[in-house]
Design a protein around this nucleic acid. Structure first.
Lengths: 226, 226
DNA sequence: CCAAAAGTGTTAGGTATACACCCATGG
DNA sequence: CCATGGGTGTATACCTAACACTTTTGG
């Protein structure tokens, strides 16, 4: 059965990248979504992405699309999975190499682009109607993120340079979707030696000042955490 | 700088699949390799693979190439990673979605194809000169396999239906590259309930008969193993 | 002095590790 | 009877999980 969209069909296999951009915001895990305004997905939402050019690597393509939409490219990015089902894009045969990125909300500038109706942060648990197989891509990315924070230090890319243990714990809780025991969490995280105590505390809060910490390394390290 | 190979350059991004096929053979972990006889890789070795057609999914492409070279397609197969560096194929821009497969050597029939000079099993630790980035692909696959046997039951796909605990332990040792304690291994694997004791033993060996076991499930199950 | 978050130890149960000898078979 | 691999238990160290009260600050 053929549909009569007024869009061109690609005759080749085409390669795209899609990037699930996560941030922790308003006490929840959120992803950046774009609202499409082109047939056949008017009003549906998608994660940022686009075609890969012949003369750029996959990572360069991801960097380019990230820079377009959020104005930065030095964030944590990792390849997730490649989605290649035949019917996933009605315009033709598009194979998408999906990536996910972790950003600090305040580091980035969300840029609107006339090709889309809207752009916004959405809670991963409450996605709107998604285009393509992007709901599945986000689900896969979320699962990967949950697994990854349990044996690496990736969360450094979601936190400010200096943070309290409570903030750190909260990020774990938000991503894992469950509460953790404060004393056990602290014992564990400190025993791993991935973070370092600073000679500084929070100030000005109507509550007891909290000690600040920083990650020893801002690169991905593999270590059993939780 | 241009090289004067007499091969055609692709003007588009092309998508291929490559499959690292593992088996346990001669008390070692081996991969199936093909010897190339075309410029610029004459005499170099590569894992099976080939282009993805517009009308087939990635998994279908993998199945097709598997069937071509080893005459079966109902084996354990999992997507590994997508390799897309610009210079990885001198003929043009080829992005390869790499998979790995686990097979029982005796289940398969290795088929020679005139497009290659030779095809053979090679120990993963002693690879010959590899074409493209296939050495890297194999290394990535091996690491994934090591990780995967530690939290799933995948090894079912490398063992016969009925096996002894010593055979099972040996497969773990070969893949992990280290010896395991017999009593601890048995305690652990039995406590997980992934395998089931049979009312049968080995016979005819010049040694005490060994109890046979089978996997309860021949599908991938996630469970902490080692 | 009140509200709010920070900070801090101990116990019990379970899991991982290290380790050595006897058994059953075929030749 | 010998060679070969099969089969079995215990003690210790370590890790995980459960759990509640005191401290410090700003308002």
């Amino acid at each position: 059965m053929k549909l009569n969209y007024s869009i061109k069909k690609f005759e080749h296999v085409i390669v795209a990248v899609d990037v699930v951009i996560f941030t922790v915001r308003d006490d929840s895990l959120q992803v950046l979504l774009l609202e499409l305004n082109e047939h056949p997905f008017v009003g549906k939402w998608a994660v940022p992405g686009g075609l890969v050019k012949t003369e750029e690597s996959l990572e360069q393509a991801v960097g380019r699309h990230l820079a377009n939409k959020i104005g930065v490219s030095d964030v944590f990015v990792e390849q997730l999975y490649t989605f290649g089902d035949i019917g996933r894009d009605p315009r033709g045969r598009v194979i998408s190499v999906a990536y996910y990125a972790l950003v600090r909300e305040k580091d980035i500038k969300v840029t609107i682009n006339p090709r889309y109706s809207d752009i916004k942060w959405v809670k991963v648990g409450k996605l709107p109607e998604m285009a393509y197989d992007h709901a599945e891509i986000i689900k896969t990315a979320w699962e990967r993120l949950q697994a990854k924070i349990s044996y690496t230090n990736v969360v450094y890319s979601l936190l400010p340079q200096k943070f309290t243990l409570t903030q750190l714990q909260r990020v774990y809780e938000i991503i894992l979707g469950k509460v953790l025991d404060k004393r056990n969490f602290r014992k564990k995280i400190l025993s791993l030696g991935v973070i370092e105590e600073l000679d500084e505390t929070t100030r000005g809060e109507p509550t007891r000042p909290a000690r600040l910490y920083k990650f020893r390394s801002q690169n991905l390290q593999v270590i059993e955490i939780l």
